[in-house]
């Protein structure tokens, strides 16, 4: 029995391990680097001369911008796909489309990363780059917010659609009957009754998707670029928290220099950010489920 209990407690140990492993090094980091500069500075430029500027804001901006593009792709497509599957599709369409979407969800992110690096990035350059299809030269390189955002959006479509599908299916049939019985069309029923009823659950699903997007690493490492800047131009390369964690911790890391230790501060920021989103999302979804139980 003791064995069983300790096995169950491992989950807590892991969480504690995660937090502690990052907290120690983060404390260490803030001893040698001013925390106000980390949180409120506006420049990210690590170097080996000892005057690195290590501010999280430009990275956070890139992260949020790319995630927003991804959600802009994934939420409408995923939601409409879920609505179609749950409300319109016959059993046969459902039985084929659902597993195929799940297949999309089971593809590892390295595949999406390679797709961004080799296919989508250069493809976008051919459209928007110098001498490209549209005759504009908006894109200088293949890495950009758009490249990473689009591909991440594709990755998130099945995530959004399967969560929303579950949620839409949890809306009781009696509500649909009530609306149809009044002479509403299917789309009126969906837009005015089903979706509003499912709204909290869908918001939860979108928050979970956002948390995924923020924590995603491979797609941005391979598609977003390494330039830390705050800009509104989606055709420019920008960088994210996760890519900087990777770049600061790979290669020859010196665990006494702020340039390496900053990765832990970034890691804990990422952890807190995604944890917060997850907690809110799970609470929202749980509350929503209870409403219809």
């Amino acid at each position: 029995m003791g064995l069983l209990i300790s096995a169950a407690s491992i989950a807590i140990l892991v969480t504690i391990g995660i937090v502690l492993s990052m907290v120690f090094e983060t404390v260490h980091f803030f001893r040698i680097y001013d925390w106000t500069n980390f949180f409120f500075g506006s420049t990210w430029s690590p170097n080996f001369r000892g005057d690195s500027e290590l501010a999280i804001l430009p990275l956070l901006w890139g992260t949020l911008y790319i995630s927003a593009v991804a959600l802009l792709v994934a939420v409408p497509v995923g939601l409409f796909a879920a609505v179609y599957l749950a409300e319109f599709a016959g059993p046969r369409v459902r039985a084929t489309a659902k597993p195929l979407l799940e297949l999309l969800a089971g593809i590892p992110t390295i595949v999406y990363g390679l797709f961004a690096l080799i296919t989508v990035g250069p493809g976008l350059v051919q459209l928007f780059g110098e001498g490209g299809f549209f005759g504009v030269s908006w894109m200088a390189g293949a890495s950009s917010v758009l490249t990473a955002g689009l591909v991440m959006g594709i990755m998130l479509i099945p995530f959004v659609s399967s969560l929303s599908d579950d949620i839409i299916n949890a809306v009781p049939q009696s509500l649909r009957d009530g609306s149809l019985g009044l002479g509403a069309t299917r789309s009126e029923t969906i837009r005015q009754v089903v979706l509003p009823a499912a709204l909290p659950g869908i918001v939860g699903a979108i928050l979970l998707a956002a948390s995924r997007a923020i924590g995603e690493t491979m797609i941005v490492v391979m598609g977003a670029g390494a330039v830390a800047k705050i800009s509104g131009n989606p055709f420019e390369a920008m960088t994210t928290i996760t890519t900087r964690i990777v770049s600061q911790l790979t290669g020859d890391s010196d665990f006494t220099s702020p340039e390496t230790l900053v990765a832990f501060a970034l890691g804990i920021s990422l952890f807190v950010l995604t944890l917060g989103l997850n907690l809110v999302a799970l609470a929202v979804v749980r509350k929503y489920r209870e409403q219809y139980e």
Binding site: V14, G215, A263, F271
Partner: peptide, 30 residues
């Protein structure tokens, strides 16, 4: 305690994978 464990498990499932990498580096290697 069991509540805490439950919440922990569902949250761990959603922690970004890179964070586990940091944990691995800090604990197993360093």
């Amino acid at each position: 305690l069991t509540d805490l464990i439950e919440v922990n498990i569902s949250n761990l499932a959603a922690v970004p994978s890179i964070v586990f990498g940091i944990l691995g580096l800090a604990v197993f290697i360093n």
